Amino acid sequence: TEVDLHLGDITIKLKDVSEEIVKRAKELFKNGWSAEFVKKWIEEAVK
């Protein structure tokens, strides 16, 4: 499945990412993480 994760003005296309990771990524962004950091976190999380 593909998900578009909207973080501010940046959209990250996610492939084969669990709902849990998407939820967590949104929380991290809301908590002040930059979109770049969230993207890196996701990449690490799906390895």
Rank of each mutant, 00 (worst) to 15 (best):
T1K: 13
T1C: 10
T1Y: 12
E2L: 12
E2I: 14
E2R: 08
V3G: 07
V3A: 10
D4Y: 12
D4F: 11
D4A: 13
L5I: 09
L5E: 03
L5R: 02
L5A: 02
L7I: 07
L7K: 01
G8P: 02
G8I: 04
D9K: 08
D9P: 10
D9N: 13
D9F: 08
I10M: 13
I10G: 03
I10A: 06
I10R: 04
I10W: 06
T11Y: 06
T11A: 06
T11V: 15
T11H: 09
I12Q: 03
I12V: 08
I12H: 03
I12D: 03
K13I: 11
K13H: 14
K13V: 12
L14I: 09
L14H: 02
K15P: 05
K15T: 14
K15E: 07
D16N: 13
D16H: 10
V17R: 01
V17A: 05
S18T: 07
E19I: 08
E19C: 07
E20F: 13
E20C: 12
I21P: 00
I21V: 07
V22P: 01
V22C: 04
V22Y: 14
V22Q: 06
V22H: 04
V22A: 06
K23M: 15
K23T: 15
R24A: 12
R24C: 11
R24P: 00
A25K: 00
K26A: 13
K26S: 09
K26V: 15
K26G: 06
E27A: 10
E27I: 11
L28T: 00
F29M: 05
F29I: 06
N31T: 07
N31G: 09
G32H: 03
G32A: 02
W33R: 12
W33T: 04
W33D: 03
S34K: 05
A35Y: 09
A35M: 05
E36R: 04
E36P: 05
E36W: 07
F37T: 10
F37S: 12
F37V: 08
F37M: 14
F37L: 12
V38N: 00
V38R: 00
V38C: 05
K39G: 06
K39R: 15
K39S: 10
K40M: 11
K40G: 08
W41G: 00
W41L: 02
W41I: 01
W41P: 00
W41N: 00
W41T: 00
W41S: 00
W41H: 00
I42R: 00
I42D: 00
I42V: 09
E43K: 08
E44V: 07
E44D: 13
E44N: 10
A45K: 09
A45C: 12
A45P: 01
A45F: 09
V46I: 15
V46F: 06
V46M: 14
V46Q: 09
K47N: 11
